[in-house]
């Protein structure tokens, strides 16, 4: 009875909304600068915000931004709470079993390891990475000890307070942090992982995937995607 009353209340509440225009809800994490973050005004900002808005403008869609915890970002997409994931997510075979990806909007971005210890040997180091990321998988592959954290921020804090030896993440994320902290430095070579970042889309939603594929292609063709990459991710490979 209670739920029925609730349903009626919400039906009444939402019935008046216009159905004319397609609204696409864009899910992001909001904790991974410069890809996506909450700026000082409390709004979602960053490379993917600008990219997403431009893609929506080209595809003539009305887009709304939603933040979601990284851990539950895929489950909430498949249960329909939003329609795309645009959260610095690399295209990997494991993820492709669950969701679809558009064509990549970034080159396979170099990952890097930052540490306070010069000349750290990665193979027997303790390395922090965010849970469920492509970098976390890499750490276990090379035989190092992996310590996982829920948010990117916590991985960096763990290096600073000595809990772990090093942190691995996308280089564009670590770059600003290493540049502004004299104690931190990059260790070893850059590592190329994954097949670039793409928008995650439900497998049952091929039209939306096609729409975004076309919009990304048009941004690649006229060079505006490269301009965005140069603005937000200096040093990353362009198309």
């Amino acid at each position: 009875m209670k739920t029925l009353a609730l349903a009626t209340a919400f039906a009444a509440l939402t019935a008046g909304a216009a159905m004319a225009q397609d609204v696409v809800r864009m899910g992001t994490e909001g904790a991974y600068p410069p890809y996506n973050f909450i700026n000082d005004a409390g709004e979602i900002d960053g490379f993917e915000r600008e990219l997403g808005d431009e893609l929506c403008a080209r595809a003539e869609l009305t887009c709304e931004w939603v933040t979601n915890d990284w851990d539950s970002i895929i489950p909430n997409l498949v249960s329909g709470n939003y329609d795309t994931i645009i959260a610095g997510m690399s295209i990997t075979p494991e993820r492709e079993e669950v969701i679809d990806f558009t064509q990549p909007y970034s080159r396979p971005d170099p990952s890097a390891v930052a540490s306070m210890i010069d000349g750290l040997d990665l193979s027997d180091a303790i390395i922090a990475a965010q849970t469920g990321t492509i970098q976390a998988g890499y750490v276990t592959e090379i035989g190092a000890t992996l310590v996982e954290f829920a948010s990117p921020d916590e991985t960096v804090a763990a290096v600073r307070n000595g809990e772990v030896d090093a942190v691995i993440a996308d280089k564009a994320f670590l770059e600003a942090i290493v540049a502004e902290d004299p104690d931190l430095m990059f260790v070893g070579e850059d590592i190329l992982l994954g097949g670039g970042m793409g928008l995650g889309i439900r497998e049952s939603d091929p039209e939306l995937k096609a729409t975004f594929d076309a919009a990304i292609q048009s941004m690649k063709d006229d060079g505006s995607l490269n301009a965005l990459i140069e603005k937000w991710l200096p040093g990353s490979a362009t198309f």
Binding site: A18, I99, E203
Partner: peptide
Amino acid sequence: GNDFVVCDAAKLPLSTADAWV
């Protein structure tokens, strides 16, 4: 498969609804 898909008019709240809804 993995997806839970209902028609647009059945979404709760509707995807056209304001953020506050």
